[in-house]
Computed example of a mutant assay.
Amino acid sequence: MIDRLTQIYQLYDRITGSAARACGPGCAGCCTCNVTLTSLESQVMTNRLSSSRRQAIYAIITQRFPEKRYIPKTSTNRFARLCMEDADLPEEENDPAWGKCPLLENDLCTVYDVRPFGCRAMVSETDCRDTGSAQMPSWVLTVNNVFLQAIEHLDQDGYSGNLSDMLLALSDNDVTGLDMQNHDLKNHGLFVKNEPITCLMIPPEHREQMAPIVRDLSELINTGLERNQGQDQGNDR
Rank of each mutant, 00 (worst) to 15 (best):
L200K: 07
C199T: 05
D165A: 00
L37M: 07
V114W: 07
Q43G: 02
D3M: 02
D172S: 12
K193F: 03
W98I: 00
G132R: 02
D216T: 14
L200H: 03
C83D: 06
Y70G: 01
R54T: 08
Q7D: 14
P90T: 05
L217P: 08
D216K: 15
P204I: 13
T198K: 12
D165T: 00
A211Q: 15
A87T: 10
I61Q: 01
P72V: 04
I202R: 04
Y9S: 12
C30K: 09
F79R: 03
L141F: 01
L163C: 04
A80C: 01
Q7N: 14
L167Q: 03
E219R: 09
E152D: 00
L220T: 11
V143M: 07
I61W: 03
T126Y: 11
T176K: 15
A87S: 15
M122H: 05
K68A: 15
Q135P: 09
A28F: 13
P212S: 08
V146F: 02
S50G: 14
T126A: 15
E91V: 11
L163R: 06
A121K: 03
E125M: 06
N182S: 09
F79Q: 03
N77D: 09
R207E: 08
Y9R: 14
S51W: 12
S218M: 06
E105K: 08
Q149A: 05
S171K: 01
R78A: 11
P203E: 15
I151K: 02
H188F: 05
S52Y: 10
D88M: 02
I8N: 04
E219P: 02
E92I: 03
N194P: 01
M201E: 04
L104C: 15
R215K: 10
I197W: 04
I197S: 03
P90Q: 12
A19S: 13
L220I: 10
V35T: 08
A134Y: 04
T36N: 08
P25D: 11
A134D: 07
A211H: 13
C83I: 05
L82C: 12
M180S: 10
R4C: 14
L185H: 02
R78Y: 05
A28E: 13
A211V: 06
K68D: 12
G158E: 00
A121S: 09
Y159R: 00
N173R: 11
C23D: 10
N173H: 15
N228G: 04
T176P: 12
D179F: 06
I60D: 08
